[in-house]
Amino acid sequence: MSIALLIVDDSGFSRKAMLKSLPESWDVEITQATNGEEALEALRKGLGEVVLLDLTMPVLDGFGVLEGIRDEGLQAKVVVVSADIQPKAKLRVITLGALAFLQKPFNKESLAAVLADCEIYRED
């Protein structure tokens, strides 16, 4: 059964790069969101079992999305994918419930490794 995957990033380029870097054998139903508000709407509709979440975004940022997930009791496995590499930013997203932090720029290998570490998807 395919997994509902939500990709959240204000950068169209970044979303495209993410799509190209997903493990090819991973059976996913993809939804894209360009800011945190759109992400929460998609999550409420059950479109994000797994979320790849950017932090720096207009309208509502990634920290806000994590707070929304927590406050509304939404179920989602979240991996934060961001260029904000402050140790305190990493600590903060993990405290807010994210499973892992993937640093930008990412590639196929670093994405596959983080998905495997979080036991979200492992390529055979």
Binding site: S11, S14, T56, A83, D84, I85, Q86, K104, P105
Partner: peptide, 15 residues
């Protein structure tokens, strides 16, 4: 693409 490249540079500067 430039915006994303700058985003990454900005992240390093912020850190």
């Amino acid at each position: 693409i430039l915006q994303e490249v700058i985003n990454i540079g900005m992240g390093q500067a912020g850190a």
